[in-house]
């Protein structure tokens, strides 16, 4: 049968086992476009829209789980209190129509270096939940993303959701595109100030083969911050921006130059940190 429309994870995994090369269809904003543009010819599609376990979110043991079918719009409108940085990122995705269709699972599965939710998810140490006939496993996002549009997902596996630790503290996500709406990321920066564990965590998009962190910059600024007052010396803020820029490995393409991307991430890092501090 060319299209499978399973309603639960077990049936999805069965369908996947029967045809490991099947295309997994969530919001369609990547897969159907590739078909329209003649870059992919589907032989068998497994449609995930009806799989109930992939919907919604829940919290267990202080860890938040977002289902793979959660759309950008749901994040933007319904989850802004729970995951403010992700909501900021979600609002920059494509258009309202795209945000209504596109899913977190799709953003993870496509694994574009410019994927808009990925920098924040990386900064949050998110773990990707994968189900397979052999059982479930979760993989830290940093290990899940193995390169441009390539992931650690095995052929028989299904992305069921993403798990996030509870993190207290300010956060910010900013993204650059050469238009004020509906634009692919030229550079994206996410920052999370974990005030409980007193750690600064970052994620950078569209400035490397996959989303990147800047561990040196994180370490240095974590030490420079006055965590009680939530302030930071100006020179340390500037140094943070520079260190983040240095941690990038951008390319030049038709969307931007490597030089601009590196520069821009440095500026975004500095500004994002400043937004998270007390004024």
């Amino acid at each position: 049968m060319p299209i499978s429309r399973p309603t639960d994870v077990t049936a999805t995994l069965d369908a996947l086992a029967a045809s490991p090369d099947a295309d997994l269809l969530a919001g369609g904003t990547d897969l159907v476009v590739e078909v329209n543009l003649d870059r992919r010819r589907p032989e068998h599609v497994i449609a995930l829209r009806r799989v109930t376990e992939l919907a919604g979110h829940d919290t267990t043991d202080g860890r938040l789980r977002l289902g793979a079918n959660v759309t950008y719009s749901e994040v933007e409108h319904d989850l802004a209190q729970l995951v403010p940085g992700l909501a900021m990122a979600a609002r920059t995705v494509g258009s309202p129509q795209i945000r209504n269709a596109g899913t977190l699972g799709g953003n993870l599965g496509t694994a574009s270096p410019a994927g808009d939710t990925l920098p924040w998810l990386l900064a949050m140490d998110a773990e990707v939940e994968l189900a397979s006939p052999e059982g479930d496993r979760s993989v830290p996002l940093a290990n899940f993303l193995t390169g441009p549009k390539s992931t650690a997902r095995r052929p028989a596996e299904l992305i069921t959701g993403v798990r996030l630790p509870r993190v207290e503290g300010p956060q910010h996500v900013s993204k650059i595109g050469p238009r004020n709406a509906m634009v692919i990321s030229v550079a994206c920066f996410a920052i999370v100030l974990d005030t409980t564990n007193r750690r600064v965590r970052t994620g950078m998009g569209a400035v490397g083969p996959t989303v990147l962190r800047s561990p040196d910059a994180e370490r240095a600024v974590t030490q420079a911050l006055d965590w009680d007052a939530l302030t930071c010396p100006e020179d340390a803020i500037d140094a943070f921006g520079r260190a983040c820029a240095e941690a990038t490995a951008p390319i030049t393409d038709h969307r931007s130059s490597a030089e601009y991307r590196r520069h821009a991430v440095g500026v975004l890092a500095r500004r994002a940190l400043r937004r998270c501090l007390s004024t």
Partner: peptide
């Protein structure tokens, strides 16, 4: 949604 991003069979 954009109908161009919806697979009709889905």
């Amino acid at each position: 949604v954009n109908a161009c991003c919806v697979l009709a069979a889905d």
